[in-house]
Amino acid sequence: MAEVAAGEPILDVRDLVKHFPVRVGVLFKRTVGYVRAVDGVSFDLKAGETLGVVGESGCGKSTLAQVLMRLEPPTSGSASFEGREIFRMRGAELRRLRRDIQIVLQDPYTSLNPRMTVGDIVGEPFEIHPEVAPKGSRAGRVRDLLEVVGLNPEHINRYPHQFSGGQRQRIGIARALALRPKVIICDEPVSALDVSIQAQVMNLLGELQDEFGLSYVFIAHDLSVVRHLSDRVAVMYLGKIVEIGTEEEIYEHPMHPYTQALLSAVPVPDPTLRGQRQVIRLEGDVPSPVDPPSGCRFRTRCWKAADVCADEVPELVPRGGGHPSACHFAEERSVVP
């Protein structure tokens, strides 16, 4: 595949849709509806960039990751990597894609095989892609990878249960690095870790990005987590991106009511500033993705909702001279002192 220059899109996603059928019956199952997990998502990822994808649990973030990894087939839409359509790849071309796009999973306690040593876990990609490393050099490569992620290479024969949660996630990162990928999809890689360990893993990911020129799609449910690492941020709600912009645009000049509500819930360390921040409390629960609201999907919880919100789906376009936001009444609102 052709190389992509820094600043150029390496991954381009357009109108991606993933619906899961809802079936009832024991013998003769019939489809009674669809879970609209991802429903028309578009974005691009530039070489060397980190795109944060943020939203509440159940908004479709992990499904998006699975579809991009070809672990789930899309219902419709397209995604291209270095200018070539991902969902049309077969054979050797698909094998190459598996090398170039890797994933770091959420739970370091279940994503590692407890019956395999760390050396076998990190070295397993070389068994699947033997062209990357000759057999005689694999042990040395595994030791180098462990050292790169901050682990002792002498622990190569230990098992996952002998490591802490943060160390296990470093093992997962080393495994993702083994094939020298260009893009790593990080599916909530720090959500299962203590706060102090989260910072260490985030710093490691930043260092690895600088060292190896990686591009990240960084998925999280907490806006405060992705700010340190992300160049741009996409906010998802019920299968759709409702706002996307640079780190400064999203955190300093949020336009969509949902983004403003998420930011207002971010803890403020300084107690003298807590009383100055207006907290936005959303009413009701997240609607079911099987039967989402008409028009704007956020309207059932939005304080700005009007008749037009039920009748028309707001497009994700720049509004008021700002960045793209999918709201008929988008306006900048400061929620963080």
Rank of each mutant, 00 (worst) to 15 (best):
I250R: 02
P337T: 00
L105D: 03
L204W: 09
D187C: 07
P269W: 11
S196K: 06
F20V: 04
G140W: 03
L273Q: 14
V233G: 00
C309Y: 00
S230T: 11
V41E: 01
F218E: 07
A133Y: 03
S191H: 04
L68M: 11
P21D: 06
G77Y: 01
E247R: 14
A326F: 08
E72F: 13
L45W: 01
P114A: 12
V290H: 07
S196C: 09
H323W: 05
R168K: 15
V201A: 14
I184Q: 03
I103D: 03
P21Y: 10
T300K: 01
P318Y: 02
L71M: 13
R96V: 05
S230P: 04
I197N: 05
I197A: 05
S191T: 07
A310V: 12
P269K: 05
E211D: 14
S191E: 07
Y159P: 07
M1F: 15
E249S: 12
H323V: 11
G166S: 11
G55Y: 07
G239M: 06
P292L: 09
I173D: 02
V24Q: 13
E56I: 03
S294R: 13
C59T: 10
D210F: 07
L204E: 11
L273S: 12
T300A: 11
L316M: 02
V13G: 00
D194R: 09
T50E: 06
